[in-house]
Nucleic acid binder design. Structure first.
Lengths: 169, 169
DNA sequence: GGAAATCTACTCGGATACCGCGTGTCCGAGTTATGGTGG
DNA sequence: CCACCATAACTCGGACACGCGGTATCCGAGTAGATTTCC
């Protein structure tokens, strides 16, 4: 299985579409976001409560409520989102096998347990490098990479779709 | 769940203990390796067939057989092992959500599908950085990090344990 | 004494069981704007 | 005109069902060295 869950993917895409073509925030409800992207609503709702607890979005309860980015789009990185949804999980879970050597007879000496396991140490470094990359890109970057490819009509169609939706209720 | 399975951890530790204190290869059977480290034998056996297919170890069938490193210890990296056991899996599995926008009406335009997804692209870069670190360390490095902490008696105890084991049969 | 049969200890590969977790759904509770109703 | 109430549309949180994949175990088949047996 992949390391980052599909919840993370939903989260990133969702926050990305809460920015308009000009890079400004746009308040939206979970239902709007879910329908706009063709993603399960109930599931996305749970994801947004996580994003809210992590302080990435601000919630507005009640009718007409929804979510809004808590910070400027360039200050929300992919790492922020991934950690908010997947709870800072490690790439590698050390089982301290080094302590299990049969020659230790179930009572490993101090030197064997001292410091961090060598393998674990390398894995931690690897994860740090990985997360550095994720921390380097914001949802504004992602948003731009979409709008730079899209025709001008794309942004308009989304705006219209949103307006229609809101007009009906 | 962690990205790299516990099978990877078993694999790395196992290959590491197929090197003696001087950094030389040491032929061992799966049973020896499993018992030495206190790890399930049957499970480890399956892992070694993967390592064998990946060309990291060479198998010798029949009585007295076992496994041996296929290359010099400094040429076997943690990435080699991880990929041999976990089959080059991606950190992130793109679901191509960008094609699902409701304004596309189930027929996404070419520009939306063109090239690699922006998020996916960042994730791939992140994974590359991570794997670079893993490719940077060999099992010889890991082995040394253990022996540098251990007293001289440690290597001797392992040798004696192995000799006892082989004498009995 | 030498050849053949037997035994033992391996590597392989498939089948299977267990179980945790990711994914997704459902529902009830609390909140807030909106619209309608009655004095 | 204004206070009050019902309704609709949200967010929140818990419970739960489902299925997949990681972990682990078991077993049979094939292979090769060691041992014994038998002529």
């Amino acid at each position: 299985m992949a390391f980052y869950s599909s919840g993370v993917e939903y989260g990133i895409h969702s926050l990305t579409c809460m920015i308009d073509a000009k890079g400004n925030k746009r308040e939206m409800s979970v239902r709007e976001i879910a329908q706009l992207q063709g993603v399960p609503f109930d599931y996305l709702a749970k994801i947004f409560t996580k994003l809210s607890k992590a302080g990435l979005v601000i919630s507005a309860e009640g009718k007409g409520g929804g979510f809004q980015l808590a910070r400027s789009p360039e200050l929300i990185t992919l790492l922020d989102i991934a950690q908010a949804i997947d709870d800072k999980k490690p790439i590698f879970q050390c089982k301290e096998i080094r302590e299990r050597f049969v020659v230790f007879n179930d009572s490993p000496p101090k030197w064997a347990c001292a410091g961090i396991c060598g393998i674990h140490s390398v894995m931690k470094t690897a994860q740090e490098r990985m997360e550095e990359v994720l921390a380097q890109y914001s949802i504004l970057d992602i948003s731009r990479s979409i709008y730079v490819k899209a025709p001008a009509s794309f942004a308009i169609e989304i705006e219209e779709w949103l307006n229609n939706k809101r007009q009906q209720s």
